[in-house]
Design a protein around this nucleic acid. Structure first.
Lengths: 351, 351
DNA sequence: GTCTGATATGTTAGCGCTAACAAAACGGTT
DNA sequence: AACCGTTTTGTTAGCGCTAACATATCAGAC
């Protein structure tokens, strides 16, 4: 009896190949791949080794057909520092292409424009939304999403909302650490440029700064605190005011990199060398930080990593919703890192 | 006999629903959907009517599982201006999520690192690769891909290679236009900062500049041409040399935005206002162009659009290859645009 | 009418994976 | 040892679609 011609591609490694290689059933392999818990540690290790050895990678089409979950994840952003966006997208992409999620991307102008964008997403069959800052901090956007009954995950939120699933760093601690580092370098007159007033991160970062100053018994001179708006120009202007003071700061802590870059430009314009005459540090470690010269000392958020994690959380949440299981909001906190580049140095004795 | 619980989602319209509705077999419906020819006109019409009535739309996962064609598109990039990357990714993403393509992303350090990255992609079942600049211009990378028998599409290539499928703008014409515009503004001493010598775009852009100058009977003073490397710092340094000349240029044309931003910083440092004392323009319209102050006049490439198009070309190419049909390389040229912002102005009478 | 070669439709099985169920192995009681 | 609950593994079927094969239908020729 002539066996029907197989439609198999030929060289594609499937879950069955792995199963045979290990000597277990395909189902067990599936369980390992999907990180289910009821698998003996020994078995899991063997399967993972085979996966590695055979260079297996799951067929997403088959998976989403089997699970009936072709998750469509919406991505809503609103004029972030575009360098942030790039890393954010990389993280989202690498993860979502692995999980086979489909992406719907929309941008909007602040929380006001969110309704329209979200409705469009919902109409396109969106199952859940990932919010990038500053939208992730907007209670207004959160309310819209809840009203729409759409699950969501916020990335880089600065305000802990126990009801919202999110991925963040500890902004307070990060600002605290950076300030502490500046103090260790001998700086005492430290200027601070705040971020946009409607982003909670702005407030949190300032509080971290204040707290570190207080702990070192250093006064926070109101003349040394300026309101910024996360833009280059606002950093430029704020720095101009502070660096023109008779008793100017020896260090400037800017709440993001764009403002720090603006501050560096101002310093140069005023004839001040960075870091010889003034130390300037930023926050976020966006592309801006390492494009300008001198490159900026800054706080690094693992943005791509956080974005990738947000996709995983979103998938979990969507699946839970689909299966009618409860899903309790998770707040994942990732580690930040202080990145010391050329824009910071120990304080010089002469101004 | 208790029937096993179905895993059907519930309200999803499938090909079977349509078939039942029309009174034919699912296969016939499939044939109609896929535009096969051996279907009676009358049947086809009935099926199409039902598809319309039931609002059926095919399940992409099921189809690609059945046809064994799930295009996996690789994306290879190498430290581009990261702002470029962001737009690039947005374009890729929006298109690939529509065509159901899977994405594999890898970065590498210059063409040297490409081999490893590409082999990893191939091992992961990649069907074709999209290259962003400067890799798209690398003949070395092109050779590797040809040796691997992997189709590829280059984005924003500056060197026309008739054998390579690509999406570009006309760099020559763009540089020509920008130069012409500067001349119209009254500038005659125009400095040019070249891009990295190993990117073909650098040469092409310079030629466009030269050509426009020649056409206006303006000499290109060798002292007014500097070698840059597409980095902020190189723009900073090159501009310092040129702007310190006794007979300094009234305008600087930088081969990308990062260098233009560096040039602006230098100008400020030298006490020159932009654009009052010197006009500085860039190229690419990356995020950098509108983050710095003053915002840069520049040449805009429709990057997102080009990236989206590259995905479509890739899909076509992969499909052609799979069906064993020939595919002749396409060279798609998109329009650029001159974006005039605050860093350029008519020449001032007094330096 | 019946045979022929086309054309139109139906049937079957399987793409790779996982939900649901079933069975086996294990650990601790009595 | 028999019993129980838990944890780990296996079995079966099916997600929606289409390739390959099988059959039915039809037009024209003898």
């Amino acid at each position: 009896m002539a066996r029907r011609v197989s439609r198999r591609g030929g060289n594609i490694v499937t879950i069955h190949d792995v199963a045979r290689h290990v000597g277990v059933s395909p189902m067990t392999v599936s369980r390992v791949i999907n990180g289910e818990k009821n698998v003996r540690e020994e078995t899991r290790a063997k399967v993972l080794a085979s996966v590695e050895a055979l260079n297996y990678s799951p067929n997403l089409a088959a998976r989403s057909l089997a699970t009936q979950d072709s998750a469509r994840i919406g991505l809503l952003y609103s004029n972030p520092s575009v360098a942030f966006l790039s890393e954010f997208l990389l993280g989202i992409l690498s993860e979502s292409s692995q999980s086979g999620a489909q992406l719907l991307i929309e941008s909007c102008e602040g929380p006001e424009g969110a309704t329209a964008a979200l409705e469009k997403m919902k109409a396109n069959g969106c199952d859940g939304v990932i919010l990038s800052p500053p939208l992730s901090d907007s209670s207004r956007v959160a309310k819209i999403l809840r009203d729409m009954n759409l699950p969501f995950v916020g990335v880089a939120m600065a305000r802990p909302d126990p009801l919202v699933c999110c991925v963040t760093i500890d902004d307070f601690k990060a600002a605290f650490s950076m300030t502490k580092r500046l103090i260790e370098l001998g700086h005492q007159r430290i200027g601070f440029i705040k971020g946009h007033p409607n982003a909670y991160a702005s407030q949190t970062r300032f509080e971290g700064f204040e707290s570190a100053m207080k702990k070192a018994n250093l006064a926070v001179d109101p003349a040394m605190v300026a309101q910024g708006y996360f833009t280059y120009r606002s950093g430029f202007d704020a720095a101009e005011r502070m660096l023109s003071l008779k008793d100017r700061p020896t260090a400037l802590f800017c709440s993001n990199d764009d403002m720090a870059a603006g501050a560096v430009a101002t310093a140069h314009r005023l004839g001040l060398e960075v870091p010889d005459h003034v130390t300037i540090v930023g926050f976020d470690d966006t592309a801006m930080a390492s494009s300008v010269w001198p490159e900026l000392t800054t706080v690094r958020q693992p943005i791509a990593d956080m974005a990738a994690l947000s996709v995983r959380l979103m998938n979990d949440q969507i699946r839970a919703k689909r299966l009618g299981r409860p899903f309790e909001p998770v707040r994942e906190i990732r580690d930040f890192a202080l990145i010391e580049r050329q824009s910071s140095a120990p304080v010089q004795s002469s101004g």
